[in-house]
Amino acid sequence: MKIIVCAKQVPDTSGKVAVNPNGTLNRASMPTITNPDDMNALEAALRIKEQTDCKVIVVTMGPMSARKMLLELLAMGADEAVLICGGQFGGSDTYATSQIIAAAIRKIGLENEDIILCGRQAIDGDTAQVGPQIAEKLDIPQVTYVAGISVDGRYISCKRMLEDGYMNIQVETPCLLTCIKELNEPRYMTVKGILECDKKPLTIFDYESLKDDPLIEPDTIGLKGSPTNIFKSFTAPQKGTGIMLEGSDREAVEKLFGILAEKHLI
């Protein structure tokens, strides 16, 4: 049994973000992190490993610099890492991305007892599409929004969150689950892990190594193979700054309610 964790390196969007005049993101100016939900996915995998002694492989598609993230995930406890990297893959939308990652997973070898874990969504695009699309391309069942996992041989029970409650769902391996932050609290790297991470296998899959998979066609991957295109990107205009109500607390509150009454808002 093994668990394949899909993790993405993303710009840290929690702080200030620089936008180029043409409405694109100035990525170079931003620090990168491992996508938060993917950390929960790896943590879940490591906990199942502790229970079943399975192997954990992390997979990412991204630039060469994503190696650094993979080393961190190895230092957290993953056994092996795969970096899918190549110019042909650049500019992929979620459809193309999922085809490429699905092909990479087939190359790693997906067996009957295996589980694929993704994050629910990546904070750069917030699409939550890549997980289900990988599952479809591999023709395996999926459970999304997973906030609890228990493994019993090939049977996996998942707590799937809904807006107004949750479902308990049972699914058999091989399957793909997308993880949310409620699932667990990701661990930190250990000193031992950091010392050992660069001795663990880190394989690079380029276009050459995946091109024989039927999913990898020039017109189904990369910018050219992506069904969706960006038509425009832009920033919202700054809203005109509102009115600060001055004076003592009481005066300010009275002014506020005066205005609200005048505008018939209350």
Binding site: Y95, D126, A128, Q129, P132, Q133, Y145, M161
Partner: peptide, 23 residues
């Protein structure tokens, strides 16, 4: 873009070979 729509739509888009824009 609910917990059902965001589970179903990507799966359908992948099967139908078409694009999907989220949220």
């Amino acid at each position: 873009a609910t917990s059902i729509g965001r589970d179903l739509a990507p799966r359908c888009a992948a099967r139908l070979h078409t694009g999907l824009t989220a949220d």
